[in-house]
Simulated scan of single mutants.
Amino acid sequence: MEERKYLLTWKRYLPVIRLHLKKSVNEDQSFKLNITDFESAGDRGKSGYTFNLSMENGKLTNNISSSAVARDLYEALKSDELIKAMLVDKNVKISVGKSFLFSIKTSPISIYK
């Protein structure tokens, strides 16, 4: 199995993700991904590139093992110090749908948990 084929693609998107992640504290954010960036990295065929990724305090809270695209995104996010700092004390949900719309929803972690 080929590993990390989307990592380089995600790393190129990190500056844009950083910007939207920062803004997502005030309102949900979304932007369009370039499908050819991902198709040139690897062909997902019918399974597509859609996924949901949930994090609490920067730690993964859902299973993304079946999605190489999501796994590589999480790896890219973890390797970026600025993004890691933005994830502290927050719940972050990232999703990519069939139309290649990258969405970020951020909420603070309740201190009453």
Rank of each mutant, 00 (worst) to 15 (best):
L77E: 02
A41D: 03
I17A: 15
K22M: 05
E2R: 03
L8Y: 11
K98E: 08
N34Y: 10
E27K: 08
R44G: 07
S47C: 03
F38C: 14
P108H: 01
E81G: 06
Q29V: 12
K98G: 08
I109Q: 04
V88E: 14
S95D: 12
L73S: 00
V25N: 05
F51Y: 06
K105P: 09
S67P: 12
F102Y: 08
A85H: 12
R12A: 12
I64E: 03
L33F: 15
S54G: 09
G45W: 04
K84D: 00
V25W: 11
S103P: 00
K32V: 11
N62R: 14
G97R: 07
E75R: 12
Y49D: 00
K113T: 13
S110D: 13
V16C: 05
K32N: 13
R12I: 00
D89Q: 08
M1N: 11
K23V: 02
I111H: 09
N63F: 08
K84P: 00
K46Y: 15
K78Y: 03
Q29R: 10
M55R: 11
H20F: 13
T106Y: 01
Y74L: 15
G58L: 09
L101R: 09
M1W: 13
G97V: 02
T9E: 04
K113V: 05
S24E: 15
V25R: 11
L60D: 03
A68H: 05
T9D: 09
L33R: 12
G45S: 10
E27G: 08
R18T: 01
G97M: 02
V25E: 15
R44K: 14
G58M: 08
V16H: 14
E56S: 14
K32S: 15
D28N: 07
E39L: 10
F102T: 09
S40D: 07
K32F: 12
K46I: 09
K46M: 07
Y13C: 01
E56A: 15
N34C: 06
V92K: 04
E81W: 01
F100Q: 00
M55I: 08
S99F: 04
G97W: 11
M86P: 01
Y74F: 15
V25A: 13
L87R: 03
D43T: 10
N62C: 06
R4K: 13
D43P: 02
Y112F: 13
E27M: 08
K78S: 07
I17Q: 12
K105C: 14
E56G: 11
L60R: 10
N57A: 14
T36H: 14
Y6L: 05
K93F: 14
N52E: 13
A76E: 01
D72V: 11
V96K: 02
N63C: 09
A85P: 08
S79H: 01
D80P: 01
E3S: 15
K105T: 12
M55K: 10
S24V: 07
V88K: 12
R44C: 07
M86C: 01
Y49S: 00
D80Q: 04
K59G: 01
F100R: 01
L77Y: 06
R18L: 03
E3R: 15
K93M: 10
P15C: 08
L14T: 11
I17V: 11
K22R: 14
R44D: 06
A76L: 05
K105L: 12
E3Y: 02
Y6A: 00
M55F: 09
Y112G: 06
S54A: 08
M1E: 06
N63P: 02
F31E: 05
M86F: 10
K113R: 04
